[in-house]
Each structure stands twice: as structure tokens, then as C-alpha cells.
């Protein structure tokens, strides 16, 4: 029990440190462009946190999360531009639409396993992408929708990147806290049990179908919130932002950081978002690099960057005798 309390304490310290560091980060950049990149980074982290709960914890692969990202963005865009409603209604509409669609999709597809589930989500995302292109009256086709208003609270407009950054990071911290709470709870263990052995999970009394659907909906809602924030930041949405390539990038972020680890999701999303910015000039070349990263990580460090990092630190500590070899056993006995 002592070990568990110590773990909770480090978890809280880590969270506080990370939150402070991120809040201070934009002060380093005077250039709006960099702050915008940080906002995109925040949005990506939010989506990857959700996808990590689904893929890393519950073991259900989705290659279609760009669809929910896009649905969130379009819902916000349409509600604010076509109906002239408050952007907060846009955000609400995103969450409701994403939640309902995810629930409808989850019931048939989550009966599938492994590659079949991946294929089904891929197909779903392609259908959604075609709808963005073809429902021209609603989505504006290839032109997309422009003139999306910015968010505001009681007259305070989030109209500069610096202001919006604060809002995005509050949302990201909320997403992070939710993920950490969930991962180490009764439901989080149930999700990991479904991943570990579905038959054993069911035999332990876990309604596997129910939890698979719930986590799919939650991860879709995370992506929709990300999409809504994106729409209000960019002021413009078009189908190009929600392609298969985006779905694959999101999956790569989860795998690169390390599956089933909240901090891994942050590391993966941060690394690839920044890399993507560097590679902007090379157009489609970045997909080649991302594909290569995905393959190399899966072969050489299946635990991702976070797992590889903790292993290296563990080796160093042991090498310099900073921790005794039997650390695990004595803490359990107390």
C-alpha cells in the first residue's frame, strides 16, 4: 500500500510539473506561428490520449479517428456559420454528434477483432471523408467552410493564438487528468483486461461489449472536441485536414509514444507534431517517414519511446546501484 501511495504522489507531481511547463511554453515564443503549432500540438495530444485509451488500454485498433476529428470540426463550423449560433453550441453539437455516431458504429464493428476492426474503421473514415467532399450544400465540398467565429467567455474573445492556447491547454489538462484517473481505476483495469484476454475478462464478470463501446465513444468524443477547437482556431475547415493520412498519423503517435501509457501518448503526439512541422516543405514525403517510424518502432521498441526511456533509466540506475535489484518485492510486502 505504501508503494501505491508513493506512486500516486509521483503521478500528481508529474502532472503539476507538466501543466506548469506547458502553461509557460508560449512565453518562449514571440512568433504567432509557433504558438499556433503549440495549439495543434495540444489538439493532437487530446486526440491521441483518447485513441490511446481505445488502442493502448482496451486493445481495439481504430484507423478512422480522423473521421471523428473531422466531424467535430464540421459540426462546429456548420452550427456557427449556417445557424449563427454560439461556438459553444458548436462544441456541444460536436460532442453529441460524435458520441451518437461513435455509438452507432461501435455496436456492429466492435464485434470484429484485430485487422477486421481496423478495416471497418478505415472504411467508415473513408465514407465520412467522401461525405465531406460530396454533401456540397452542407459542407461546401472541396472549398470547405470559412469564416468560423472564435470562442469567447462572457465577452472575452479567444481571438489571438496566445489566448486560445490557454483554453486548449486547459482542455488538454482536463483530458490528461481524465485519462490518468480512468487508466488506474476499476474501469481502466477492465479495459486492460479486455486487451489482455477477452475470455478471462468475461469470466471475471466484465461485460466486455459494454466497455468496448463506452471507450470507443469516449475516444471519439475526445477527437470531436479536438476537431471543434481546431475549427475555431483555424476559422476554416476543408476535407484535406481529415484524410486517411491523418488517421494513420494519429495511430503512429500512439504507437511511437508507447501504448497503454498516458505519458507515452503525450510523447508520441509531441514528437510527431513537431517532426511534421519540420517536414512541411517536403509535402508527401512525410508519410514515407511516418511509415518508416511506425515499422521501426514496432520492430525495435514495441513499448514505444516511453517504454524504451524507462528501460534505459532503469538500466542506468541499476548500473550505478541507485536502486536495489529487489525493489519490487519489498514494496509489495509493506
Amino acid at each position: 500500500m505504501v508503494a501505491v501511495r508513493a506512486l500516486l504522489k509521483t503521478r500528481r507531481t508529474g502532472l503539476a510539473l507538466y501543466g506548469t511547463a506547458m502553461a509557460l511554453l508560449p512565453l518562449m515564443f514571440s512568433n504567432d506561428y509557433y504558438v499556433k503549432v503549440l495549439i495543434i500540438l495540444g489538439i493532437n495530444i487530446l486526440i491521441v490520449l483518447g485513441l490511446n485509451l481505445l488502442m493502448g488500454y482496451a486493445g481495439q485498433v481504430s484507423i478512422g479517428h480522423a473521421a471523428f476529428y473531422g466531424m467535430g470540426a464540421y459540426a462546429s463550423a456548420i452550427v456557427t456559420t449556417k445557424y449563427g449560433m454560439s461556438p459553444w453550441f458548436g462544441l456541444l453539437a460536436s460532442i453529441i454528434l460524435g458520441g451518437i455516431v461513435a455509438y452507432g458504429i461501435a455496436i456492429p464493428t466492435l464485434r470484429l477483432k484485430g485487422h477486421y476492426l481496423a478495416m471497418a474503421t478505415l472504411g467508415f473514415a473513408e465514407i465520412v471523408h467522401v461525405l465531406f467532399l460530396q454533401l456540397k450544400d452542407i459542407t461546401g465540398g472541396t472549398d470547405g467552410i470559412s469564416g468560423i467565429s472564435t470562442l469567447s467567455i462572457a465577452g472575452f474573445l479567444f481571438d489571438s493564438p496566445q489566448k486560445l492556447y490557454i483554453l486548449v491547454w486547459i482542455v488538454v489538462m482536463a483530458g490528461l487528468i481524465i485519462s490518468i484517473n480512468l487508466a488506474n481505476s476499476r474501469v481502466g483495469r477492465a479495459l486492460r483486461a479486455v486487451h489482455g484476454s477477452e475470455i478471462a475478462a468475461a469470466s471475471m464478470g466484465i461485460d466486455t461489449a459494454k466497455y468496448k463501446i463506452q471507450i470507443f465513444v469516449l475516444s471519439a468524443v475526445f477527437a470531436c472536441i479536438g476537431g471543434s477547437l481546431y475549427a475555431h482556431m483555424a476559422g476554416f475547415v476543408s476535407p484535406d485536414s481529415f484524410t486517411l493520412g491523418v488517421s494513420i498519423t494519429l495511430v503512429t503517435m500512439v504507437v511511437l509514444g508507447g501504448m497503454a501509457n498516458v505519458w507515452g501518448a503525450i510523447i508520441g503526439a509531441s514528437t510527431l507534431t513537431i517532426l511534421e512541422e519540420y517536414l512541411k516543405g517536403y509535402e508527401d514525403f512525410n508519410m514515407v517517414i511516418f511509415g518508416l517510424i511506425l515499422v521501426l518502432v514496432m520492430v525495435f521498441m514495441p513499448q514505444g519511446l516511453y517504454g524504451a526511456g524507462t528501460r534505459v533509466i532503469g538500466l542506468i540506475k541499476r548500473r550505478f546501484k541507485l536502486i536495489p535489484d529487489t525493489a519490487g518485492e519489498e514494496s509489495a510486502a509493506s
Binding site: 476499476r186 474501469v187 483495469r189 486492460r192 486487451h195 489482455g196 484476454s197 463506452q214
Partner: peptide, 23 residues
């Protein structure tokens, strides 16, 4: 066994049906 968890977490999964808190 759930290889992606610690030993004690494996047993805690068994408590699932006798505990209530939802998502």
C-alpha cells in the same frame, strides 16, 4: 492471466463484478 498488468492488478480485476463505479 492479464500479461499487461501487475500481479495485484490481475486479482483486482476479479473484484470488478463486486464493485460498482462506472466510467
Amino acid at each position: 492471466i492479464f500479461k499487461n498488468m501487475s500481479v495485484v492488478e490481475n486479482v483486482m480485476v476479479g473484484r470488478h463484478i463486486r464493485t460498482k463505479n462506472g466510467m
